[in-house]
Design a protein around this nucleic acid. Structure first.
Lengths: 219, 219
DNA sequence: TCGCAAATAAATCTGACTTTTTCTTGGCGC
DNA sequence: GCGCCAAGAAAAAGTCAGATTTATTTGCGA
């Protein structure tokens, strides 16, 4: 596909492509290729200009919040850089989201969050990494949703990608750090009790741990 | 246009549209309408299904980080809600970005940030709101860029929309709050001196001020 | 140097054809 | 008579290819 190729940096910024040529290369009609180009254009990956062609835009212009772009880039070569960027974003957003969740979460949401934390504990020993991941993702997603902020809520997919990436692609033979598991349980507690400051502080510890983990893996 | 209509909530989730009908309504050919639908689909605003039509997706599915979607929603009816969401996002991201900028910014970037702060001071009195806005936007954009995190850098447009919205649409007869201007100058100082903690704290004060301002305008 | 004309590639339009999915209808067994 | 399943019809998206339009760049000539 073209999207992965562009996000991988196969075409330097300013490269010019022509739709008919692309249509031939991918063995589709021009209309199909046009639609694809229009989508890439809406992602700011390329820019279409009359009499010139389809121009590849510099990485700084890409809409890096587009889930599709995130997936393409995570599958590509600069995956480590991308993972770091996303983890830093997490470290900024999640503590604030947890603080908001502490004041906004409904009783049902509190119950669900606690349930996830319990699930994490239950899968924290004995190489049950998949089950652990499942509850971990649900835990963070619930908090982002419970914050009541739609911008935060939409980052659930990003968190999922980052956590899944850590489990599947990076080295992760051992069971998760018991201290991290405890932190999750305590965050659930804080949110339940409506203690925003504590929820924020504890979540910050979690995300800082994730950052440190990245430093160890890819210094 | 269709994008604004959907983001405005004119079509309840699940509404079914047909491309041929839309093409007629907007007086364009089917191919053009198809391309438009494909773009809306990439924004997760709609979902196209064979034998059914183009289905409007619920707001929770929309890619609210797409600059185009942000603009459409800011122009629509739930502008206040949107502004609040974005301001909360700012309050999470900008302090962390400022801390990173304090350790990552080059000498040139420090100079540019300081220059903007000076510009803000110069335009802070005498109803020079436009000039003030210009420097304010540049200031925050520079910090986001200097953080060295591409995800932060791409939020420059969001900050611009929020700040511009405050100046143009909300009531803003008076000159900006002198305390806020001073905070900006101090943030520039902190970044120059590499004092991450101070830059983060001061930026948090700025964004908290922005949130309080929203509370006063639309409680 | 300025303006006009030619060339070029995207943009648009159109009509025919294909594919997939859903709805309907008819037949069969209970 | 009622319910269920399968075959077929219908509907709308998806695909394709050819013709036409439009805008922009380039180069030629005044």
């Amino acid at each position: 596909m073209l999207g992965p190729a562009i996000t991988a940096g196969d075409y330097p910024p300013g490269s010019v492509l022509r739709t008919d040529e692309l249509a031939q290369r991918f063995e589709v009609s021009r209309s199909v290729m046009r639609e694809a180009v229009r989508v890439l254009e809406s992602m700011h990956l390329v820019e279409s200009r009359r009499r010139v062609g389809v121009i590849v835009r510099p990485a700084a212009a890409w809409n890096v919040y587009d889930p599709q772009v995130i997936r393409w880039r995570l599958a590509g070569a600069d995956r480590p850089r991308q993972l770091r960027s996303l983890t830093v974003l997490r470290s900024a957003v999640e503590p604030v989201a947890a603080a908001l969740a502490a004041t906004h979460a409904t009783a049902e949401q509190c119950a669900a969050i606690t349930e996830c934390a319990i699930g994490m504990v239950a899968h924290s020993r004995g190489h049950k990494l998949e089950g652990y991941l499942l509850h971990d993702v649900a835990f963070h997603r619930l908090i982002l949703t419970a914050s009541g902020n739609e911008m935060f809520a939409r980052l659930g997919d990003v968190v999922e990608e980052v956590l899944a990436g850590r489990t599947h692609h990076e080295v992760m033979f051992d069971d998760p750090d018991p201290a991290a598991v405890t932190l999750h349980v305590q965050v659930a507690e804080a949110i339940r009790e409506g203690d925003a400051a504590r929820a924020e502080h504890l979540t910050r510890e979690i995300t800082e741990g994730a950052l440190k983990e990245l430093d160890i893996l890819a210094p």
